[in-house]
């Protein structure tokens, strides 16, 4: 009972902040609150949102995954190689890119769980490896999906008849539901919290912590793969040199959503709200013609504020 109540309060606070920020921009800018722009905000949440969903699991175990940004770029390149260069059928190509993301996560998981490397180090190394491989595999040139419009429609096409509501948003929503079910309703989720809460006790309770950690990092990798597909579909091309920096935005979304970097606490709803807060801020500040540099300053301040508010609230209990 207490757990759900406490989580609700946390989510409510994050949600309230989202509403406040949203309201603020609606008042100060006439171009902010309309169907086109709101759709735009949702659309721009997709990539960060997908990365944040996967990494929420890792962070709840008390770990961190820095490889998701460049990993995403590598998966985008893999998708391009499969579909454009090799002519693999679209569904198989997409599946291959997602599974490749899983492979990246699997290696991360094994480095952390079996070799015992600190997650920060293991995934920092993977971040560099993925960046390099993306350039090597693609010959440092973007791969364009001009010949496969169906691929681009995965992101910007619309399944909802008579609208231009992008599929990407629907995919993010579906992914969030899947992540929520996994975290709250399955053994996987229970052990995610358990490992983050007290790893040694979890092992002593007879749970194969190493195996579950590998599974959790692999899961994060699958989300990375999906993000790679979605970003290349949106851009119409796989850009090998991108990706760096996305991991920090994703981690920021997770943290703003109330997930603790020390592990044991967090929620999917919080992460989704965190990702939305970041998009709304970026979008609103852009509409207000605030330069990109200042947007970053403001985003940094928001992260400090969100985490401080969360800690202050817990201390007050």
């Amino acid at each position: 009972m207490r757990r759900t109540l406490r989580d609700r309060i946390q989510q409510f606070l994050a949600f309230a902040s989202l509403i406040v920020i949203f309201g603020f921009f609606s008042i100060v800018s006439p171009n902010f609150f309309n169907y086109g722009n709101v759709t735009n905000i949702l659309f721009s949440t997709v990539v960060i949102g997908l990365l944040a969903l996967g990494t929420t699991f890792v962070i709840i175990t008390g770990g961190i995954d820095l490889s998701i940004g460049t990993g995403m770029a590598l998966c985008a390149v893999i998708s391009g190689v499969l579909i454009v260069d090799l002519g693999v059928p679209l569904p198989l190509g997409v599946l291959g890119a997602i599974l490749f993301g899983g492979l990246i996560g699997l290696v991360n998981g094994m480095n952390v769980a079996i070799l015992g490397l600190p997650p920060f180090i293991a995934t920092l190394a993977m971040m560099l490896v993925a960046q390099g491989l993306a350039l090597v595999v693609s010959n440092s040139t973007p791969i364009y999906f001009d010949q496969t419009p169906a691929y681009i429609d995965l992101s910007i096409g619309s399944l909802i008849p008579g609208t231009d509501f992008p599929n990407a948003v629907l995919i993010l929503a579906l992914a969030a539901v899947v992540a929520g079910v996994l975290l709250n309703r399955t053994v996987l989720g229970r052990y995610t919290y358990s490992i983050g809460s007290n790893e040694e006790a979890t092992a002593l309770s007879g749970i194969d912590v190493r195996r579950w950690k590998i599974i959790i990092y692999t899961l994060a990798g699958l989300f990375t793969g999906l993000a790679g597909v979605m970003i290349s579909a949106r851009l119409g091309s796989a850009q090998p040199a991108t990706g760096m920096g996305y991991e920090l935005q994703a981690i920021a979304a997770v943290v703003i959503g109330g997930t603790s970097l020390s592990g044991g606490k967090g929620s999917i709803v919080g992460t989704v709200i965190g990702a939305l807060i970041i998009s709304v801020l970026n979008n609103g500040l852009q509409i207000m013609s605030i330069p990109q540099e200042w947007q970053n300053v403001i985003l940094g301040a928001v992260i400090l504020l969100a985490v401080y508010a969360d800690m202050a609230r817990k201390r007050a209990r």
Binding site: Y193, G196, S197, T202, L204, G264
Partner: peptide, 9 residues
């Protein structure tokens, strides 16, 4: 020691 997961019910 180390017997409980404090974040679980």
């Amino acid at each position: 020691e180390f017997n409980l997961m404090p974040d679980l019910t």
